[in-house]
Simulated assay, not measured.
Amino acid sequence: MNRKVGLFFGTFNPIHTGHLIIANHMAEYSDLEEVWLVVTPHNPHKKKSTLLDNNHRLEMVYRACETYERLKPSNIEFGLPQPNYTVKTLAHLQEKFPTNDFCLIMGEDNLKTFHKWKNSDVILENHEIYVYPRIASGEVDAKYKDHPKIKRIDAPIVEISSTFIRKSIKELKNVRPLLNDKVWEFIDQMNFYRK
């Protein structure tokens, strides 16, 4: 029997308590045995200027996951050609770890645009998708409503954004409650997001 591993992709710029709440909920309250937090090198839809160096973001994810046995940081996309697509990452992982069944973790808002993803039908053919709720998610494509490979997990709704955290740090606001202590210490020590 293969191990079920959930993949939670993100730029994690920075990783915050919202990410940890969702990842931990998926690991504890679904049939996933582990959740890998996959640090994406550069999302073509995001401006690169505000993005910290790949290894700095990976370091923050390492620090955030240290005390969670079933959460693992992953830099698997760092070595893949850019721009990269999820379908290619999944194929690469399946080849590298044949005894794992990889599942995607995404918010309801991402499911709304999933049909626009490169080879979304291929992804759905080969992988399950675990969806967590979002407040403003909009209408999901009818074909995904009762799809057998799409599992809706009743996770807490957490509306914290990395953009808000970066902006707040720049404005010298105290955002420590929104970040894991070790992540906050690293950001503070490295003087990230201040300029």
Score class of each variant (00 low, 15 high):
73 P>H: 06
52 L>S: 11
61 V>A: 05
46 K>S: 07
40 T>L: 00
59 E>T: 14
43 N>L: 06
54 N>I: 07
61 V>G: 00
36 W>T: 02
63 R>I: 05
67 T>Y: 13
71 L>V: 07
44 P>T: 10
66 E>L: 14
32 L>R: 03
53 D>G: 07
48 K>C: 04
71 L>N: 03
66 E>R: 15
37 L>I: 08
34 E>R: 08
58 L>Y: 14
62 Y>T: 06
60 M>D: 03
55 N>W: 15
65 C>T: 15
38 V>L: 06
37 L>S: 05
37 L>N: 01
57 R>L: 07
41 P>W: 00
49 S>M: 08
50 T>S: 14
63 R>C: 07
70 R>A: 11
45 H>W: 15
55 N>M: 13
53 D>A: 09
42 H>V: 01
72 K>R: 15
65 C>H: 06
49 S>F: 08
51 L>V: 12
44 P>Y: 10
57 R>Q: 06
43 N>A: 11
50 T>I: 14
52 L>Q: 14
71 L>I: 05
58 L>M: 13
34 E>H: 10
35 V>R: 04
48 K>D: 11
39 V>M: 03
63 R>F: 07
70 R>L: 10
49 S>V: 12
61 V>T: 02
54 N>H: 10
42 H>N: 09
41 P>G: 12
64 A>W: 03
72 K>L: 12
65 C>W: 03
40 T>Q: 04
57 R>V: 02
